[in-house]
Design a protein around this nucleic acid. Sequence first.
DNA 1: CATGAATGAGTTTTCATTCAT
DNA 2: TATGAATGAAAACTCATTCAT
Lengths: 215, 215, 215, 215
Amino acid sequence: MAKSSAPAEAVDRKTQTHGLLVRSASEVFSERGYHATRVSDNAERAGVGQGTFYRHFDDKRDVLDSVIAEAMSRLGTAFEDQNAPEKINDLAEYRARAVDIAAKVFDLIATEHRGLGFLLRELPSIDERALKGTAGLNALMHSVIEQYYRVGIERGYFRPDIDTDSAATAVLGLGLIAAWTILRNPTDVEFRRRYGDTVVEFIVRHAVNDPSQLT
Amino acid sequence: MAKSSAPAEAVDRKTQTHGLLVRSASEVFSERGYHATRVSDNAERAGVGQGTFYRHFDDKRDVLDSVIAEAMSRLGTAFEDQNAPEKINDLAEYRARAVDIAAKVFDLIATEHRGLGFLLRELPSIDERALKGTAGLNALMHSVIEQYYRVGIERGYFRPDIDTDSAATAVLGLGLIAAWTILRNPTDVEFRRRYGDTVVEFIVRHAVNDPSQLT
Amino acid sequence: MAKSSAPAEAVDRKTQTHGLLVRSASEVFSERGYHATRVSDNAERAGVGQGTFYRHFDDKRDVLDSVIAEAMSRLGTAFEDQNAPEKINDLAEYRARAVDIAAKVFDLIATEHRGLGFLLRELPSIDERALKGTAGLNALMHSVIEQYYRVGIERGYFRPDIDTDSAATAVLGLGLIAAWTILRNPTDVEFRRRYGDTVVEFIVRHAVNDPSQLT
Amino acid sequence: MAKSSAPAEAVDRKTQTHGLLVRSASEVFSERGYHATRVSDNAERAGVGQGTFYRHFDDKRDVLDSVIAEAMSRLGTAFEDQNAPEKINDLAEYRARAVDIAAKVFDLIATEHRGLGFLLRELPSIDERALKGTAGLNALMHSVIEQYYRVGIERGYFRPDIDTDSAATAVLGLGLIAAWTILRNPTDVEFRRRYGDTVVEFIVRHAVNDPSQLT
DNA sequence: CATGAATGAGTTTTCATTCAT
DNA sequence: TATGAATGAAAACTCATTCAT
């Protein structure tokens, strides 16, 4: 018993320190930027020695992968909750859902602005691999959005001639600039409300099959 | 005469070298990325000694300001050519103009993908000041777009209840993601065409006052 | 136990390296001069890497403070041993003490000519702060000398109208030029003897109350 | 005539610029110190181009020789004016002369404190050659002082058993520390007066043959 | 001769990574 | 396994000196 628990504790401790370093990395990278952050900053923030960092990661680049993976997983989870295009039967329900999603996404962005800002600001500048780490989330978001379009077309409240791929890309663009703006000003609730309304209007009016249904 | 021409020549030479270094910086920053570029890379590319670099700029950060300023000036000029919202009288003309602008902007992006990619990828990761350098161009684009909305509303072919500020932001978002995608794949002409059509559709359908005019 | 000893050893090692670097700095500064010494010379002499130097000191200027402090402390200790003006009762004892001190000081100068020469030659040329580091020793020497004068006046073998402050300064001058000369020629014992006699004569004859005691 | 005057003017101009650069060097060396002064600082102060500097001097070290030579010549001249030991017939005249010289020397030091400070502070730290440049002045001062002693002994108002060499050295020491103190506080007239009195007292009492003549 | 832009060798300085304890 | 002192390769930066005009 005692014998088997000792290694178990060691594993636990290792996992704990690992997680601690990933979280610290996320923080210090967000604050000073990836390039300006020294490995010692990260270790210090985590409250461990510099050598300990190298027990858990190959190098400075390595911990970034974990930071990205962790963030992607967290965001992916948050985004997947919104998935249920098949439950939407008409334009009114679609609009309601769009309003709801926009509000939730914008709030998520404002809440997570520290970590998200880092990803949006820095990843493209680090290397191709860092960017690839976000490809999964991009693809997920794109396919979910496209699924909404497909359901809408199928059920007749969306135009049948929509290029769903391009449209999904466009919706990501509407979200991207929102993210940018919110991240630079996370407390501007007014912008989020107004811009959210506009985004919904863009999406609904672009896609609607029968414009007379627009109230 | 001889006396006054000597300094004049020196000034000329200095200006020339300065410009050479800015252009070289733009190139090497685009190729290797800002952080991976050494001052010596820049000097070498310009064909001057490293010391010469420091005669013209305080450090790597300093030359970046010039690179940004030069790019912003060039892009601003390119963008201002598109300015003539007051000449558009009806939806058909508006749509034609939108198609035209989208094509031109996308081509510009594809053509300038080296320099533009650098700006889009790297600036946010460098510092606040770098980003401030782009604020002018952002504001210019935003205000031009908004002006199109105002003219459209005035002349009756756009809905009067559009939030022109938010709408302009949305249009920038539609363009931003296009830029991202094109920069990652500058030769994909097909995407440009399809996505351009979709963007125009988004803009026109969102704004149109009388949907029956959409043929 | 093991836990507490590991850091303790680290601290020990750090302290040791620090001291090593200060001693090496004193040596190389004395040999090549402060300005001609490169940080790498110091590290090399200490047998450590250049990076190690920067773990212990901000820059070359920083280690100088430690070198000065260490030298001042050592010289201060050597000088304080000479302190005992209150034990001198008459001119004969005073003269004997003066002869003794002169000999000891001159020997000290000759012995420590490496480090002392550096201080005397270089400090004034470095900066105000370097000089301030020697103020304490100057003040100590001045006050000790002045104390000898006060005791002598009190006990009647010195003139009562001596300006003890100026006189102490003068004595420092007599010593200063001795230091200069000895440092330039540390092996000239003859000079030390002759000049020592002259200095004692200067001091005694200047201060004596009753010249008839001079024999 | 015109032909011969053109070269003459050129020579004049050259000499003028040369002198200008030496004076500028003396200034900037005094202000920032020799090592911290860049050749460009010197040229700028003189109001000429950097290249011009190298038309007049081999290198940075070279101009220092001129600065030293110029200063030595100026100080030598000032000091030689004091030369007239043979006119002094008794102790009273000697004391009067000593008071006079001390006052003049101290005033000279205070007046020239910029250039003198540089020489005293920096020369020993630069190189052996710089110091050699001052040897002539030292020797001159030493021999003049010694001459005073010889005359005094000859004429009987000084003790015959004085070691004139050591005594001259001692007097230089009394002057040296005065220089140090005055240079650090050129406006303290009170110190000069008090210390001057003390110095005279040291010299006279040390040398006098018949102490009863001391009033 | 005068000029000042250009040069690059020489130093300083940083910090990711190693390694002895 | 954790630690943090040591390391040195890689960059940044300075400035005496050269050289084309």
